Simulated assay, not measured.
Amino acid sequence: MARIRDIRIVALEFAVPDDQAYGMARGLTARRGGAIIVVETDEGIEGIGESWGPPRITAEYLRLVKAYFVGTSIFAQRGVAQTIFAKHYHFGIQNQLVSLLSGIDVACHDAMGKVLGLSVADLIGGRQRERVAAYASGGYFTATGNHETTLAAQLEPHVDRGFLAFKIKIGRNPAEDEKRVALARRIIGHDALLTVDSNGNYTFDGVMESIRRIAPYGIHWYEEPLAPQDWKGYAELKTRATVPIATGEALYTVFDMKRLIDGRLADVVQPDLALCGGLDVARTVGILCAAEHLRISPHVWGTGVGLAAAVHFVASLPNYPHSDNVPFPTMVEYDMGRNALQNDIFQEPIQFKDGYLEVPKGPGLGVTLNPEVVARYTVS
């Protein structure tokens, strides 16, 4: 049985000029980064995963917990992670430790698939489909230029690419939200789904005013309307909002995810596999969502490794409670922001065509890093 011989981190960063920074209501960034987690087995097989957040902090947590993993089976990563939580419970679960464990989990699944000759989708539930729907995630606030002009410039190139849905950033103030939503609707037309994301920048009263203004434009979901831990706010919002609510990208481990799902505090649950606990937790979240008849749509905003994991995860999900006719397919977030870490780091990127991402067919995640490109963006 393949055992873990070593775990290492490859820290990546892609930067744009400061005047080309882009982002959300809480702020902009000129840098995109991520930590690629590499799990090496005693048989020479390597699995890759992704850990969200600052790689230097992730590396310090790896120094703490690596000994727990070395020598164990790649199939036993779940038990090791639970042991770490039990022994180091004082550290909490909203931190880079959980992001690290998420990346290790995905890397172990990649290695498992390579050992068994199975894709991750087949490994975690059976491949239910060969391609998954993707929504165009962008519509960012920008550092320079007229915000309506830059929003249009971000949306227009993708209107004819077959996307089922588009997402734009809002959340700086309700009046501006309405202007951005009205413009987006004019550009993408009435057939495409439109979702919005305020990244938790509002208090309850601000969200209600924002919803009042934008609901007439046909909002498919309103993402992160409140801060992640505003549990009472989400409970009240669910009874008063006139648009569907989506959240979950900033929740770590199954514990907070379960609280969100059990309370039916969102219509669409959005785990991020690079920080929620990896594929193991995502599978549990998927089961819990099915039990509560809630939709799920994984958040992706890092490197292509996290995107590959999300594609395999969605490919493994059954259509329940639907059968022949699925009103809205489960969608993967496909970032339209400038980010070389998404596709350029692979020898062959995940293929996109007519609004869908093809599920890689090779063993494990089915993607291979391009060493030269990875070296170009590696930082110490």
Rank of each mutant, 00 (worst) to 15 (best):
D6W: 09
V10I: 15
V10T: 15
L12T: 14
F14C: 05
D18E: 15
A21V: 14
Y22I: 06
A25T: 13
R26C: 07
R32V: 11
G34Q: 11
V39K: 01
V39H: 00
E43V: 10
E43T: 14
E50P: 01
S51H: 07
P55S: 15
T58Q: 02
T58P: 00
A59R: 09
Y68T: 09
Y68K: 04
G71E: 08
I74R: 03
I74M: 02
F75T: 10
A76R: 02
V80W: 02
T83Q: 04
I84Q: 04
I84V: 14
F85V: 14
D105E: 10
G113E: 10
G117S: 09
G117F: 10
V120W: 06
V120S: 05
L123C: 05
G125V: 02
G126I: 10
Q128Y: 05
Q128W: 02
V132F: 08
V132C: 01
V132I: 14
A133R: 00
A133L: 06
A134S: 04
Y135D: 07
G139Y: 02
H147I: 11
H147T: 09
L151Q: 01
E156P: 00
V159Q: 03
D160N: 08
F163W: 06
K167D: 13
K167F: 13
I170A: 07
P174E: 13
R180F: 06
R180N: 10
A184I: 14
A184N: 12
A184D: 08
I187C: 07
D197G: 02
S198A: 14
D205R: 03
G206F: 12
S210P: 00
I214Q: 03
Y222A: 08
E223N: 01
E224Y: 06
A227K: 05
D230W: 10
D230S: 10
K238P: 00
T242K: 14
V243A: 02
V243C: 03
P244W: 12
K258H: 13
G263Q: 05
A266L: 12
L273E: 06
A274F: 08
G277A: 06
D280T: 15
C289R: 03
A291R: 07
P298D: 12
W301D: 12
W301M: 12
T303R: 04
A309N: 01
A310W: 07
H312S: 04
H312C: 11
F313D: 08
V314Q: 04
S316W: 11
P318K: 08
N319G: 01
P321Y: 14
H322W: 15
T330H: 08
L341T: 08
N343F: 14
Q347C: 11
E348L: 09
E348W: 00
L357Q: 03
G364Q: 05
L369K: 02
A375E: 14
Y377P: 01
Y377D: 06
V379S: 07
